[in-house]
Computed example of a mutant assay.
Amino acid sequence: MKYFEIEAQSIDEAIDKVVSEQKYPREFIEAEVIEEGSKGFLGIGRKNGLYKIKVNDYEYLKRKIKLTLTEILEKMDIHNFRVEIIEDYPTCKFNIISEDSNILIGKTAQTLNALQHIIDKIFNLEDESDKQFILDVENYRDRILTYLKEKATSLAANVLRTGKPAKMPPMVTMIRKEIHMSVKEIKGVKTESYGNGDIKTLYIVPEKGKKKRERR
């Protein structure tokens, strides 16, 4: 939620100011009186009231992302699709259901990650540190995350047994963070990431006696 304290002659005028200046639709706005104004006598001694305006920017952002994503998919000539919203606050997932799911995912999820990058930039989602807005195609991210967690657990067991680091495939940040957290629960090993940009290679290494590796 976002909150504004607005001085105005009436509660409707206070709401109008937020709609005009902040560009939020009225349907996402609630208002309450902090201090009543006074009309004065014949306009003399008139005093503005003070109003607290509450904007449900989370719901507004959800709607804007869905509308923008729909426009992008239509311009990509994707047909017969729908976008479902799956919420597990603070995570909000926009899951695309389509006959063209393989096209939308792309090789090693390149197309899906590109769509995520576009939406992130349009709405400055990097600034939404307390919430996550994730794009997916027919729950691909969930499926690949389950697979990668199982692979990481297996590789971690090998690292504990042999003392040799293990390499995992390059991953985007949101997937890599999940693997980091998963491996963190296994005593005796840790993860290290190497590379530039959003996609980096992840290694599982022994916590003690590891050899420093060159960045790749």
Rank of each mutant, 00 (worst) to 15 (best):
L135W: 03
Y60S: 07
P25G: 02
G209R: 13
P169E: 15
H79Q: 13
I134N: 01
L73P: 00
F81H: 00
A166K: 04
D100N: 12
K39T: 14
E178M: 11
S10V: 03
G188V: 10
E35P: 05
A156I: 10
K121V: 06
H180E: 07
E192I: 07
K64I: 04
L104G: 02
N56V: 08
N158A: 09
L135K: 01
E138K: 04
K131I: 07
K64M: 10
V137L: 01
T111V: 10
H79F: 08
N124V: 05
I44N: 08
Y203K: 00
E185Y: 00
V159N: 00
G40T: 05
S101D: 10
I65L: 03
K17F: 05
R161M: 11
S98F: 03
E36C: 08
L73C: 00
K210A: 07
Y89D: 14
I97N: 08
L160I: 15
I86D: 06
E27I: 10
T191E: 02
I44F: 15
E71S: 12
K151P: 08
P165H: 02
C92M: 12
F133L: 11
N95E: 04
L73K: 04
E7Y: 05
K177R: 15
I6D: 01
R161S: 12
E84G: 08
N102W: 13
E5W: 00
H117L: 13
G45K: 05
T70N: 09
A166H: 05
V55G: 01
K75P: 03
R176V: 02
G43P: 13
E126Q: 12
D142W: 06
Y3F: 11
K54Q: 06
H79C: 10
L42Y: 14
V33R: 06
G209H: 11
H117E: 11
K164R: 12
E71F: 03
G49M: 08
A157C: 12
E21H: 03
Y24G: 03
E71H: 09
E150K: 15
L115N: 03
A114Y: 04
D57M: 07
D142K: 15
I134L: 14
V205M: 08
S182D: 09
T201E: 15
N48E: 13
H79I: 13
T191I: 04
D130A: 13
K187G: 10
H180W: 02
L42M: 15
L104P: 00
E21P: 00
Y60W: 12
R63D: 07
K107I: 07
R176P: 00
Y60I: 09
Y58I: 13
G43M: 06
K54N: 08
G49I: 07
I119C: 02
S38K: 15
F4A: 04
E59R: 06
T108I: 09
D142E: 15
K151D: 14
L145M: 09
K2I: 10
T191F: 05
R213H: 12
Q22H: 07
S38E: 15
Y24H: 02
E84Q: 10
D77Y: 09
E192K: 13
N48H: 10
I186E: 01
F123T: 10
M171H: 02
A109D: 03
K149E: 04
I29Q: 10
D16A: 09
T191V: 03
R26V: 02
I34C: 02
V159K: 00
D198M: 11
Q110C: 06
N80E: 13
T162W: 01
R215G: 11
K212S: 14
K131T: 13
A156F: 00
L73A: 02
F123E: 04
K17G: 03
I11P: 03
